[in-house]
């Protein structure tokens, strides 16, 4: 069963994230694929995340696919114009990729080629529109395609941003532009999330809640200060602190698992997207503690 099929069948799904390497050595990446295969339902392949140049997400997606892990191809609008994006999408489809996540993309200044000229010919909403167009057998300019696509396209949303109103408008625009599923930015406040979900549930889309594993008090504070759209509540930070430095990660895993369990039990959303940056190998453990394995 594909991710699309599982979601449409109402199954609670789990996705994870794999980051393409910087360089041609895919050894560690293969280990991660190995680790996740059969456990998660699909894995996102990031697209030059944080504007740091790496192997393209298309190549790694194909690699994952060939190794039995269903990929979600992430596509940002930072590095390609509308021609490049469409041509890559067609290529991905030819190579068997069906899931795409459409994003605008972090600005070049956050990456390792700060003097690059950013493209942003189009942005997320317009990219979703393009995918919709390709699915209908035409390109953006309206030309007929010799064979259309059959993508299952998704988008992102930030439910815990400190300024929600325009974010919700944009959510709606993405739905209208063809987004079928959403993966959210990390959520930590189940209550706030459920109020977002009561809004999201009014649209015919699937929502996967973003789960980030807290590794330490320092990381939680850092994210609160610097990462937009993330808000780690004080009581969680306290919980980490009380666990002590040694056991903080373990407690973080507990928290993640607890949240997943709550989301599932209360039937708040359609799945979770686990972002275990740097600790990819812990994903099975999290799933286990959440009772998903």
């Amino acid at each position: 069963m594909t991710l699309r099929e599982k979601l449409n069948a109402g199954r609670f799904v789990v996705t994870a994230e794999i980051g393409p390497p910087k360089g041609t050595d895919v050894g560690r990446l293969m280990e991660h694929i190995e680790l996740l295969r059969g456990k998660v339902d699909a894995a996102n392949v990031t697209d030059n995340q944080s504007a740091v140049m790496r192997v393209c997400s298309l190549a790694i997606s194909v690699l994952a696919l060939r190794n039995g892990l269903e990929p979600i191809l992430q596509m940002t609008c930072r590095d390609r114009n509308r021609i490049g994006l469409q041509s890559d999408l067609l290529g991905a489809h030819v190579l068997g990729i069906r899931n795409v996540l459409c994003m605008t993309g972090d600005y070049v200044s956050s990456g390792d080629h700060k003097d690059a000229k950013p493209v942003y010919d189009i942005e997320s909403v317009q990219l979703l529109r393009i995918v919709e167009r390709l699915n209908s057998g035409r390109d953006m300019a309206g030309n007929e395609l010799a064979g259309g696509t059959d993508f299952y396209q998704g988008a992102v949303v930030t439910p815990e941003t400190d300024y929600l109103e325009p974010q919700l408008v944009k959510f709606e625009k993405k739905v209208n532009a063809g987004a079928r599923f959403f993966q959210t930015q990390a959520i930590f406040d189940i209550e706030a999330f459920s109020s977002f979900m009561s809004f999201a549930r009014t649209f015919p889309v699937k929502v996967l809640a973003g789960i980030v594993v807290l590794k330490s008090v320092g990381m939680a504070n850092y994210m609160n200060r610097n990462v937009p759209g993330i808000r780690v509540p004080e009581d969680l930070i306290e919980e980490l602190r009380s666990a002590g430095r040694e056991n903080a990660l373990d407690r973080g895993i507990d928290i993640a698992a607890r949240h997943i369990r709550q989301l599932k039990e209360k039937n708040l959303c359609d799945g979770v997207h686990i972002m275990a940056i740097g600790i990819e190998e812990k994903v099975p453990l999290i799933m286990e503690r959440a009772g998903l394995l």
Partner: peptide, 10 residues
């Protein structure tokens, strides 16, 4: 980013 449909998530 010059985007036209509302704020990015950043």
């Amino acid at each position: 980013k010059g985007i036209l449909n509302g704020p990015c998530g950043g």
